[in-house]
Design a protein around this nucleic acid. Sequence first.
DNA 1: AAAATTCCCAACCGCCGAATT
DNA 2: CAATTCGGCGGTTGGGAATTT
Length: 325
Amino acid sequence: MGRSPCCDKLGLKKGPWTPEEDQKLLAYIEEHGHGSWRSLPEKAGLHRCGKSCRLRWTNYLRPDIKRGKFNLQEEQTIIQLHALLGNRWSAIATHLPKRTDNEIKNYWNTHLKKRLVKMGIDPVTHKPKNETPLSSLGLSKNAATLSHKAQWESARVEAEARLARESKLLHLQHYQTKASSHPHHNIGFTHKTLLTNWTTKPNEDQQQLESPKSTVSFSEMKESKIEFVGSSTGLTLIKEPVHDWINSTIHEFETTQMGEGIEEGFTGLLLGGDSIGGSFSGEKNETAGDSSGGDCNNYYEDNKNYLDSIFNFVDPSPSDSSPMF
DNA sequence: AAAATTCCCAACCGCCGAATT
DNA sequence: CAATTCGGCGGTTGGGAATTT
């Protein structure tokens, strides 16, 4: 049977974390690694459940987290991956370095979803709510193709995500080993920095606009002894690599992300309802009267660009090195 | 200036699958 | 093989901040 909720124990604190609690959690993980989350709170002197500690660590305290506004490229990546993967935030997060699934999920729900809706695009299916105009543009065939390819692509991206998770796990184990053998091992931050951050509002002053790249480490992928076998329900992992295909698809993904094609499509599309000049989080500019997503006159063109950009993502190169298609 | 409303996000909840006993 | 434990995921929400009335 199921287990009882871990926070049901009397006396366990819930709600927002205090700086003192953060410091305890950080200090413990810095010194010992997190180990078993279940037993961590007691060892760390926290009156929290392990789940709460894990969440706090993964979504906030981890040193490799990037906070602040999402840049254009990150937004594009989220939209593209969401079109392929749906609400699989953890899989999407593996392609957005330093972003947590929770943050991406929040950003999608509070910003991107609304933006798509305003553009007349169904945020679930990523199709225009009224198909007719696009059909007349001759896109219906493309849409069918997209649907088919997206199934494969979805499986591929999911496999990438899995690999990324596995490699992260390996790194974590490596780190934990290090932490246990080096009691004062520094993992890239100090209590001081944490407390400094707490004196200002989190999120506010840590905006970095780094150029994102896939968290899937290509070298790790190359070293991986894993082969993907597609199936209707997902992927089976068996031994021995098929490096060429993996690397080529990853390369396609990466070049597509950096390429000008999608940039153009999404930039025009998404910037349309937002502020001009790259200040991209200025949603308040999307006031009534501004037919967000651009001019009404540009509606069809915009949607065409939107679909095109996804087509480009799914099928980015004319040569199409993927054996799947 | 104050009240009402909306927005945003950290954190919780419940479920699931994998691992362990 | 069943029961249990654990970590992880996605959906949801509470409450503070920001904005509007």
